[in-house]
């Protein structure tokens, strides 16, 4: 490749990259700017090369709200959705892909039909239902509806159906039951699909905002994405504190992303191969 062409590619990437990264740099530098500075330059570029660096804003966040509580809520809710979801959906995907049973084809068609229904389309009646059950302001109301996932089942199904049959035959001849075959033969050979589904579920659920907004009114079970919105509307308006909250909130997923970047990319790409 010619030097001129390589130079032009780098130049375009650098310019667009700057535009992409500026809001993030802005957030981080704002979080480190002493309160007085953020007030003086609210939103200005000056905030990027702030006069001083301090951790006051981070201290303020812990003094003003129960950040660790929100963090725990988010980790617990998402951990349960991802963990229990992997178990429940992989078993269903396995049953649809590898077992012969009465009603399988009809049920699988129904699962595929459910795929098209977004949460938004059912949020109102679901909200009404959980209100009737008296489930509002609990962890369960933020976990249970998201465990069974038609798309996860579909991803497991497509992976399992491509695995060679012989592997199970041997186990079956040895007299292993359905669960043991699944656990000992299928799972160890299907790690990529488990990783992809885990990453995709986490990525789509970690930022959940609409549903927690509808079903939680108290602080106790509020997850981070909702907490930052309420923190932002909590007077006095201190941008440094809000940014410090934001940096701390995004750090766990950013670290996960940087460590397991190939898996994130693979997870997203897997979602693109459907249909």
């Amino acid at each position: 490749m010619g030097y001129v062409k390589a130079f032009l590619i780098y130049l375009s990437l650098l310019l667009i990259g700057l535009l992409f990264i500026t809001p993030i740099v802005f957030m981080i530098s704002g979080s480190l700017t002493p309160d007085a500075g953020v007030f003086a330059q609210a939103g200005g570029w000056d905030a990027l090369w702030s006069a001083g660096v301090s951790l006051d804003n981070y201290r303020d966040v812990f003094a003003r709200v129960d950040f660790m509580g929100y963090l725990f809520n988010s980790l617990f809710i998402n951990g349960m959705i991802v963990g229990v979801g992997l178990l429940v959906n992989s078993l269903a995907g396995y049953a649809f892909a590898r077992l012969q049973w009465y009603g399988r084809n009809l049920l699988f068609k129904l699962v595929l039909a459910v795929l098209i229904i977004p949460l938004e389309a059912i949020a109102v009646p679901l909200f009404y239902m959980v209100s009737l059950f008296g489930w509002r302001d609990t962890y369960w109301v933020q976990i249970l509806p998201f465990i069974a996932n038609a798309f996860s089942i579909y991803l497991f199904y497509t992976f399992f159906i491509g695995m060679p049959r012989e592997m199970e035959e041997a186990a079956r001849i040895d007299g292993a039951g359905v669960l043991r075959t699944f656990y000992c033969i299928i799972v160890p050979n299907a790690k990529p699909v488990f990783a992809s589904v885990a990453v995709l579920t986490f990525l789509t659920q970690w930022g959940a905002f609409l549903w927690p907004l509808m079903v939680t009114s108290g602080e106790d079970v509020r997850p981070l994405p909702l907490a930052i919105a309420t923190f932002y509307s909590l007077p006095p308006l201190q941008w440094g504190d809000i940014f410090a909250f934001g940096v701390m909130m995004v750090t766990p997923i950013l670290v996960l992303f940087l460590l397991f970047q190939p898996w994130f990319v693979r997870g997203v790409v897997t979602s693109g191969i459907k249909g």
């Binding site: 990525l203 930022g207 994405p225 932002y232 809000i242 940014f243 997923i253 994130f264």
Partner: peptide, 18 residues
């Protein structure tokens, strides 16, 4: 370029307000 995708939308919205 991929980094903003892992940012929760509510955080993105708050940052862009400023």
């Amino acid at each position: 370029f991929f980094m903003p995708v892992v940012f929760p939308l509510s955080l993105v919205a708050v940052v862009w307000v400023l």
